[in-house]
Simulated scan of single mutants.
Amino acid sequence: MPAVAGPEIERLVQLLARLPGLGPRSARRAVLHLIKKREQLMAPLAAALADTLAKVTVCRVCGNIDTVDPCCVCSDPRRDPTTLVVVDDVADLWALERAAVIQARYHVLGGTLSPLDGVGPDDLNLAGLVGRVTTDGVREVILALDATVDGQTTAHYVTDLLRPTGAKISRLAHGVPVGGELDYLDEGTLAQALRARTPF
Rank of each mutant, 00 (worst) to 15 (best):
A3P: 13
V4C: 09
G6D: 14
G6A: 06
P7V: 05
L12S: 00
Q14R: 14
Q14P: 02
P20N: 05
L22P: 02
R25D: 03
A27S: 12
A27G: 09
A30C: 10
A30S: 09
V31Q: 03
H33K: 02
L34R: 00
K36Y: 11
K37Q: 15
R38H: 07
M42A: 15
A43Y: 12
P44Q: 08
A50D: 14
A50K: 09
L53H: 13
A54W: 08
K55D: 12
V56P: 01
C59H: 05
C59M: 08
R60S: 15
C62Q: 04
I65T: 03
D66I: 10
D66E: 11
T67N: 09
T67H: 09
V68I: 15
P70C: 11
C71P: 04
C74W: 07
P77W: 14
V85C: 15
V85I: 15
V87Q: 06
D89V: 01
V90R: 01
D92L: 00
A99T: 06
A99P: 00
V101I: 12
I102C: 12
Q103S: 14
H107M: 00
H107S: 00
G111I: 03
S114R: 04
D117A: 14
G118A: 08
G120D: 06
N125Y: 10
R132Y: 00
T134S: 09
D136N: 05
G137H: 09
L145M: 01
V149W: 11
G151S: 06
Y157V: 01
D160H: 15
T165L: 02
T165D: 04
G166C: 04
A167Y: 03
A167D: 04
A167H: 02
R171I: 03
L172M: 11
G180W: 11
E181N: 14
L182C: 08
D183Q: 13
E187G: 02
L190A: 07
A193Y: 12
A196S: 14
P199S: 12
